[in-house]
Amino acid sequence: MSRIAYVNGQYVPHLDAAVHIEDRGYQFADGVYEVIPVVNNKLIGEEGHLDRLWRSMEELKMAEPMKRKPLEMVMREVLRQNGVENGLIYLQVTRGVAPRDHPFPRDAVSSLVMTAKKTSPEKAEAKAAKGVSIITVPDIRWARRDIKSVSLLPNVLAKQEAVEKGAYEAFQVDEEGFITEGSSTNAWIITQDGTLVTRPTGNDILAGITRADLLKLLEQKNYKVELRPFTVEELQNAREVFLTSSSSYVLPIVEVDGKPVGNGHPGSISNDLRGIFKDFMNN
């Protein structure tokens, strides 16, 4: 079955999907987006993702492309037409099409596109069982990382550096030597005494939905958690390290900058947390 995309009110073959050359998302990265995981036909963290999408639009003074309930209906139709039971759905909203000029166009009509794709649970489990490696890089992004903007070039450069060094992800480091987050993930460490540490939300990181859901689960399970910045040195000396994201859920990290984390294998706590999160998704 060929893939189907949604573009401004129409369902079209994925290969034919297009927006106008003067769409401000294309010319100015004047847009926002969300990626929502789908597990057994269930959109995981749907409410949180859509809340964040609306917040991003409000922060950029961008008009909503449609009301929330109709948008939810379109999302499900995109999934149905693509036959996606396990995978990801991508939503992007831009300020729309207008003659190229920096100021916001008057009476702009926002553009909305959606795509969906299948993913392999088996491949994800194989990756988690082995664990992944990361590198650290300077954080060169803008000051409003809390907005899920399509302006991702610094993230792309960080991820590309990771790929070129044979790593899965790049954790970014601020000017004071603290980890902010990954290029497309939230960063966590587990200290030697078993405390889970992740940076608190603010303008300097994206408030991850998987991160937020995991924090709720940790509170229910009585894990010890500290919301604070942590240094590169703490990262390198941690008992365990893992990341969270919509596509990877909870993913153990076994190597940082070429040096093993612990014994170089996924840690017991990280594995337990992945199991807890999988149970959450399947219930």
Rank of each mutant, 00 (worst) to 15 (best):
R3T: 08
R3Y: 11
I4S: 04
V7T: 07
G9K: 00
H14A: 13
D23P: 03
G25A: 09
Q27P: 01
E34R: 04
E34Q: 06
V35M: 03
I36A: 11
N40R: 13
E46N: 05
H49I: 01
H49W: 03
D51P: 00
D51V: 10
R55D: 08
S56L: 12
E58Q: 14
L60H: 00
L60S: 02
P65T: 02
P65A: 07
M66C: 15
R68L: 15
L71W: 08
M75K: 07
M75I: 14
M75A: 12
V84H: 05
T94L: 10
G96M: 09
H102R: 15
A108M: 14
S110G: 09
L112C: 11
T115V: 10
K118V: 14
P121R: 02
A124E: 13
K127G: 00
A128G: 05
S133Y: 01
I135P: 01
D139V: 14
A143L: 14
D146L: 04
S149K: 04
V150E: 05
E161Q: 14
A162F: 07
V163G: 04
E164T: 11
Q172D: 01
D174T: 02
E181A: 10
S183H: 03
I190N: 02
T191M: 10
L196M: 13
L196F: 07
V197L: 02
T198N: 13
N203Q: 15
T210Q: 06
D213L: 15
L217E: 08
L218Q: 11
Q220E: 13
N222W: 03
V225Q: 08
R228Q: 12
F230I: 10
F230R: 07
F230L: 08
V232E: 12
L235A: 06
L235F: 06
L235V: 02
N237I: 00
F242P: 01
S245H: 03
S248N: 10
Y249R: 08
L251K: 00
V254M: 10
H265N: 11
H265L: 13
H265D: 04
N271R: 13
G275F: 02
